[in-house]
Design a protein around this nucleic acid. Structure first.
Lengths: 197, 197, 197, 197
DNA sequence: TATGAATGAGCATTCATTCAT
DNA sequence: GATGAATGAATGCTCATTCAT
């Protein structure tokens, strides 16, 4: 048995995963600069040199976390593109599914999301990428006749990202609304607007 | 003439204003922690003790900037409430006016806006306040019959703030769209949605 | 009339005296290093340059205060030498008179005394001078047959100064005993000792 | 051998002890405020961060030194209480033993003593504690019939501390008298006084 | 006699990072 | 795989002091 009774051969992996997880929480809670390596290692029960065994620098572990978020977020976004040939009636529900998945991911990965969406210097870049993907989705869907044509889809994509960003912070992370609720309300708003019918 | 050719008697005020302005730019560009007092004073052409003549700490000057933004933003938001008795036709235009004013303020005060909207620890609080104000506006306007009733106005307010936040960063500050354009597009999207007519 | 209605021509003197008095209290309460010129001038209602109009430096005003104490203390000590030809019976009373005068001076000039007796770098030197004077007094008095001869008077003088120093701090400045009481008790102890008769 | 030829494994302890010892000398010689951390570490041959590895602040290392003095001083004072049933003849000698031990401690720990007895903000408190202990000793001894009863023992204790304080500074630390000499002279003075027999 | 404004010089403290073992 | 011990390089902040008026 490895030390402390863990399964042998995984001690290193465990330490690294441990550090990543704790670092995520620390960064999310205190921001990049106020997060101290000394705090992370203390919470992980290892020493500072051990940290540098797994990560070349503070910046590096942060970027590793950013990368994790970035990949997953992009993946989910890509998967949310609607198939062609859908009934107009089914649109709202189908759109909501994709959004729900994203919100669920955010919800399940609070610290990671805070890092990737708000804290990182790359946050803008990440969101830009997502906007690009969403724009492509929307334009494709627009060509499929799902949306009206006299509206600029990039702006809609930007808006959607802005909405998601904000509602995630104020509703999702405050446990005031669930992923599906948020998804549904956003769809309702963006599809039908506020006008009196 | 006072030293360095400035008008006498206002030297102190000038130094303080100078420091505030430069600090705003530095904070906006590098963030709170990477902004050094030493850099600010160097750019202002004064020494470090002079800085502490006008501000008790780095934190204090930052908060002073945050306060400036906060007050102005809240003021503009309050002023954007619509009067009663408007024709439905004039709604889009009237709403756009308030938004335009806010975007114009953001545009004219880029650094301050970055600080108050994105960088400050109080950014969330500030936006929450604005959301509250907007919610009140919207609900009042909703009661005036300007908007459909089966939609939760607080969520709309949150969404609107999210949209403004995002479009400010990606369009306004990138000089890709002007305040009025942004205002108009937002109104169009939020009023009529994406649905095919 | 001078400004603020004071008698003309004395404004400068007043400022200087004011500064000295406030400085004494500040030094006494906070020590040399923790006393700030900025605090002194604030309490005196003048500006920093005004301070330097009257004193060349922080060190200088401190030394001026030390000097005031030193002179007065030495004077009182000299005056306490006993005349020749006294009755042995009257000794305790006569000795007590000199001590009382000194304690009274300490009591009336608390801040100054703290500075000269405890805080100043010259405190040791000042006390040494006093010890020297007292030694001379005691030896003279010893030759007059007032005291036993098999005791080293310099040591007695040192002891006396040590006792005064301590009782001043713990009894006099705490308002627990009055000058005369202290004087009498010291005389009793030093004259008769603790031995059981 | 460890680096710099020291025995391995105790390097940390050694650094800390080194810093404590040097700090004591520096504080004793220059006072709290004029003592610079930079000087201490330079003399100890380490860098500033190393200092903060062992002490959280300048204040903290100073207090650690004060504590060391305080404990040892109190211990020695307690041990100096006289047993009951002593011959009156043996009193002077027995009292001198306790005083000698204290003076010896002062002599062997000059810097520490200066700090604890003169420099520290707690010096008065420390001496008050000692006065309290001595008062208890003296009163107990007075009840044992060792001393006359018409004298207030707290005042005697204060006086004794004042005398010790002063003679330590002027005789002991100047290498003019040895611990035993000082002890004996004090006993002689306080026991028999100055009166002509 | 007095001041508004400014500064030179310094000091404690912090933190990511690295050896030697 | 892990650590005890140490450091290079900053950085915010303070304070006595001065100049021009």
């Amino acid at each position: 048995m490895g030390k402390r009774g863990r399964k042998q051969g995984s001690s290193g992996e465990h330490s690294k995963a441990q550090l990543l997880s704790i670092a995520a929480d620390e960064f999310a809670e205190h921001g990049y600069f106020s997060t101290k390596i000394s705090t992370i290692v203390k919470k992980a029960g290892v020493t500072q040199p051990t940290f540098y065994l797994y990560f070349p620098s503070k910046e590096a572990i942060f970027q590793e976390l950013v990368g994790l978020f970035r990949n997953k977020f992009a993946l989910l976004t890509k998967k949310s593109r609607l198939e062609t040939g859908l009934e107009l009636d089914s649109l709202p529900g189908r759109i909501a599914i994709g959004l729900t998945a994203i919100f669920q991911f955010f919800y399940d990965n609070r610290s990671l999301t805070k890092i990737g969406l708000y804290l990182s210097d790359d946050a803008e870049e990440i969101k830009n990428d997502i906007v690009q993907l969403i724009t492509e989705n929307l334009e494709s869907e627009q060509r499929d006749g799902y949306f009206r044509t006299n509206v600029e889809m990039r702006t809609v994509a930007e808006s959607l990202v802005g909405i998601m960003e904000r509602l995630t912070a104020t509703y999702l992370f405050q446990d005031k609304k669930k992923p599906e609720e948020l998804a549904r309300e956003i769809v309702d708003l963006l599809l039908y607007g506020l006008q009196v019918k």
